[in-house]
Structures are given as C-alpha cells and as structure tokens.
C-alpha cells in the first residue's frame, strides 16, 4: 500500500498531464493533501507547468471579464430586431 502510493506520487510528480489536471481541479474544488504535495513538488521542478498555472489563472479572469467586464461590448442587437421586439411587447401590454 505504502509502495503503491509512493509510485502514484512519483507518477504525478513527473507527469505534466496529471499536474495540469490537478491545477485545474484545485481552482474550483479541493484536492487531497497528497495531491497538493505532489503538485507542489512537480511545480518546483517544472518551469513549463509554472507558466501554465499562471496563464490558466489569467484565462479564468478573462473568461469572467468577457461577460462581466465593464467595458461596453461591441456585441449589440441591430435596431430592426429591437424595434420588432418593442412592438411585440407593446402589443402584449395593450392587450392587457
């Protein structure tokens, strides 16, 4: 049992696919202590995954900003569509 988990630990420690998986999981959920340790160990020795981690966090913020950003979006509905929509609403309100 001891041996198995050691192997597993080694596996994660040297495996970028596993490491990036844990990076993602950690951002929105909990990972086990063992996983935390393995990830830390991996990141200490892997500069590429350290870059990945930083970029991954930036992407999260960018995705949020796509919609919740304060800058006005250039995505707007055309006037014709809005006018039709307004007419439908007015009709509905008139009927009431």
């Amino acid at each position: 049992m001891q041996e198995l988990s050691k192997n597993r630990l080694k596996q994660i420690s040297y495996n970028c696919r596993q490491a990036t998986f844990l990076i993602e999981k950690k951002q929105t959920s909990k990972i086990t202590l063992r996983e935390q340790f393995a990830l830390k160990f991996h990141l200490a020795g892997c500069s590429v995954c350290r870059i990945y981690l930083k970029q991954s966090l930036t992407i999260n913020r960018m995705v949020k900003n796509l919609f919740y950003g304060n800058e006005p979006s250039d995505l707007t509905l055309d006037d014709h569509f809005k006018q039709n929509l307004q007419e439908r609403i007015d009709q509905y309100l008139d009927r009431k």
């Binding site: 870059i51 990945y52 970029q55």
Partner: peptide, 23 residues
C-alpha cells in the same frame, strides 16, 4: 498536447510566456 507515454508536454505544445502570465 502531452506525450501518451510519460505525460510530459510535447515540445511543440509547451506553454511559452507571451504576456498571459499576469492579469
């Protein structure tokens, strides 16, 4: 993106710094 054997980044798919590291 990863080597199917050892799970390392493939050389051509390795993350590089390009200004996405800081928000």
């Amino acid at each position: 993106f990863f080597d199917s054997q050892n799970g390392h980044w493939k050389a051509e798919d390795q993350p590089k710094t390009f200004g996405l590291e800081e928000y």
